[in-house]
Amino acid sequence: MLPARRYAPGKGVADLQASVSHHRASIELNPQIPWLADTDGRVTEISPRWAKLVGIPVKRALGEGWRTPVHPDDLPTSSRSDGGRWKLETAGCPK
Rank of each mutant, 00 (worst) to 15 (best):
A4F: 06
R6D: 14
R6V: 14
P9N: 04
P9K: 01
G10N: 02
G12L: 15
V13C: 05
A14I: 04
D15W: 04
L16I: 10
L16T: 14
L16Y: 13
Q17D: 13
Q17I: 12
S21W: 02
H22W: 03
H22V: 05
A25C: 07
A25Y: 00
I27E: 07
N30S: 15
Q32V: 02
W35S: 13
A37I: 04
D38S: 06
D38G: 06
T39G: 09
G41R: 10
G41T: 08
V43F: 10
V43G: 05
T44K: 03
T44E: 10
I46D: 07
P48C: 01
R49F: 05
A51I: 01
A51N: 09
K52A: 08
L53D: 01
G55N: 07
V58G: 09
K59A: 12
R60P: 00
R60S: 10
L62H: 00
L62N: 08
W66M: 07
W66F: 15
T68I: 09
P69Y: 00
V70K: 00
P72V: 06
P72G: 00
D73T: 11
P76H: 08
P76G: 04
S78P: 00
S81W: 04
S81F: 03
S81I: 10
D82A: 03
R85H: 06
R85M: 12
W86G: 09
T90N: 11
P94H: 14
P94Y: 12
